Simulated assay, not measured.
Amino acid sequence: MLVALTVATSVAALALAAWCGFAAYRDQPTKDWHFIGMGVVTLLALVQLIVGVVQLARGEDPEQGTTIFVAYLIGSFACVPAAGFMSLGERTRWGSLTVAAGGVVLAVLEVRLYDIWGG
Results as ranks from 00 to 15, higher is better:
Met1Leu: 13
Met1Asn: 10
Leu2Gln: 12
Ala4Cys: 05
Leu5Trp: 09
Thr6Phe: 12
Val7Ile: 14
Val7Pro: 02
Val7Gln: 14
Val7Lys: 15
Ala8Tyr: 06
Thr9Ser: 13
Ala12Trp: 05
Ala12Phe: 10
Ala13Ile: 08
Leu16Phe: 05
Leu16Gln: 00
Leu16His: 01
Ala18Tyr: 08
Trp19Lys: 03
Trp19Asn: 03
Trp19Arg: 11
Cys20Pro: 02
Gly21Ala: 03
Gly21Leu: 03
Phe22Gln: 13
Ala23Lys: 02
Ala23Asn: 01
Ala23Phe: 07
Ala24Lys: 01
Ala24Val: 05
Tyr25Lys: 07
Tyr25Leu: 02
Asp27Ile: 12
Pro29Arg: 03
Thr30Gln: 06
Lys31His: 12
Asp32His: 13
Trp33Asp: 02
Phe35Asp: 05
Ile36Arg: 14
Gly37Glu: 00
Met38Tyr: 01
Gly39Glu: 14
Gly39Asn: 11
Gly39Ser: 14
Gly39Cys: 05
Leu43His: 12
Leu44Cys: 02
Leu46Ser: 13
Leu46Asn: 09
Val47Met: 14
Gln48Ile: 04
Gln48Lys: 05
Ile50Gln: 09
Ile50Met: 14
Val51Gly: 07
Val51His: 10
Val51Ser: 08
Val53Thr: 09
Val53Trp: 11
Val53Ser: 07
Val54Tyr: 12
Val54Asn: 10
Val54Met: 13
Gln55Asp: 09
Ala57Thr: 11
Arg58Tyr: 11
Gly59Ile: 06
Glu60Tyr: 13
Asp61Gln: 15
Pro62Asn: 09
Pro62Asp: 11
Pro62Ala: 10
Pro62Leu: 11
Glu63Phe: 13
Gln64Cys: 07
Gly65Phe: 10
Gly65His: 06
Thr67Cys: 05
Ile68Glu: 14
Phe69Cys: 07
Val70Gln: 06
Val70Arg: 15
Ala71Ile: 12
Ala71Glu: 08
Ile74Thr: 12
Ser76Thr: 10
Ala78Asn: 05
Cys79Ser: 12
Val80Ser: 00
Val80Gly: 00
Pro81Val: 09
Ala83Glu: 01
Phe85Gln: 06
Phe85Pro: 01
Phe85Met: 09
Ser87His: 03
Leu88Tyr: 11
Glu90Trp: 12
Glu90Asp: 15
Glu90Gln: 13
Arg91Glu: 06
Thr92Tyr: 10
Arg93Cys: 05
Trp94Asp: 04
Trp94Arg: 15
Trp94Gly: 02
Ser96Thr: 07
Ser96Phe: 02
Ser96Asn: 03
Leu97Glu: 08
Thr98Arg: 04
Val99Asp: 00
Ala100Pro: 00
Ala101Gln: 05
Gly103Thr: 00
Val104Phe: 10
Val104Tyr: 04
Val105Ile: 15
Leu106Phe: 06
Ala107Asn: 05
Ala107Thr: 10
Ala107Arg: 02
Leu109Gln: 15
Glu110Lys: 09
Val111Pro: 01
Leu113Asp: 00
Leu113Val: 05
Tyr114Cys: 08
Asp115Tyr: 11
Ile116Gly: 02
Ile116Ser: 06
Trp117Asp: 03
Gly118Pro: 04
Gly118Met: 07
Gly118Asn: 07
Gly119Thr: 10
